[in-house]
Design a protein around this nucleic acid. Structure first.
Lengths: 186, 186
DNA sequence: ACCTGAACACCGTTCAAGT
DNA sequence: ACCTGAACACCGTTCAAGT
């Protein structure tokens, strides 16, 4: 017994995954949810607010699960690679979540904060274990996320290793950074 | 005496800078170039091909200028920061250039290759000077570009240092990576 | 070779009206 | 409170026709 609202968000997420952002039209969203083409306006102020709901739900679902007793260095590498793998597997959701939002969705903001805070804790543990250099853990987190984000985004655009030489996939670049971080810690 | 084609590309670039991708409509492009709303179809197969021309021209203009006698470590840092600064100053052009192209524009491909090759040479010089770790220079280039790209893209989306703590702007992250590279070289 | 004007099939959004 | 159907002002693209 899903609400109409949930049905609309489901439909939008499906369309996004299947055909990219251009495929998400309010008319098709309504059709799939079994309502008229402007019923969405009774639940969301406009199209962007519907997309913000899709992004917020995605971020909430993807919230990091920490594992008991995992080696801190391995945990950091695993999380950075999970980020990259998620981006490569669901490019449209990835680009949606990290786009520039004019609508400040509460759910979206909170989910992003929670996800980031969890990542910072992983970095802090890695620092304590000597697998990352000292210094503000928020800043080291930003460094790792920026590398993972950029590697994934470049790869999605086909701008990584176009010509065979120096072929590096995004996860290889995460490995390279992890090696530098470990070296920088020692 | 600019050709109609050039006038169309100019108009599209202006609209992109002023109002983002949504503002680039073929109708307004035509109006600004002083032609009808479908004259663009006599010069470009479709809207994407016009945008590819805008992106290709931008990439050509921005092609790296190497400086004689510059310290290799400083040169690498300067170029990475120039990349970040360009992205922050012209976000729409940045996102356009690094988007996923279905149209394989010759100009766009060649400009991208040339730009990348020039960056690889800068990395090679930095390695020779002991300012970057050894190994495939293409791969070290990919690492630096991925970090710069990700830092800029996250910053543009407001996803860097949202809460004041650990505040790092994209150029700070470039500095952090440069420090790690220098340490990794020694 | 290059351009125009009308037309087609869309789109997001608004509005009056229904239950 | 939630939904519908018609309407408005767009959009990219196509096509027949003009020079």
């Amino acid at each position: 017994m899903t609400s109409t609202r949930d049905a609309l968000v489901d439909a939008a997420a499906d369309l996004l995954a299947a055909g990219g952002p251009a495929a998400v039209t309010l008319r098709e969203v309504g059709r799939r949810a079994g309502v008229s083409h402007n019923a969405p306006y009774k639940h969301f102020a406009d199209k962007e607010e519907l997309l913000a709901a899709v992004a917020g739900r995605e971020l909430t679902r993807r919230s990091g699960v920490s594992r008991e007793g995992e080696d801190p260095a391995a945990a950091l590498s695993r999380r950075a690679k999970a980020y990259v793998r998620w981006a490569m597997a669901y490019p449209a959701r990835f680009k949606l979540v990290f786009g520039a939002w004019t609508t400040a969705s509460a759910e979206l903001g909170e989910a992003a904060s929670a996800s980031r805070a969890s990542f910072v804790e992983t970095v802090r543990a890695a620092q304590a274990a000597g697998a990352a250099p000292p210094g503000d853990p928020e800043r080291v987190t930003a460094l790792v996320l920026a590398l993972a984000h950029g590697a994934a985004d470049l790869a999605l655009g086909g701008h990584l290793s176009r010509d065979g030489k120096g072929h590096a996939d995004p996860e290889d670049l995460v490995d390279d950074l992890m090696a530098l971080l470990a070296q920088g810690a020692g």
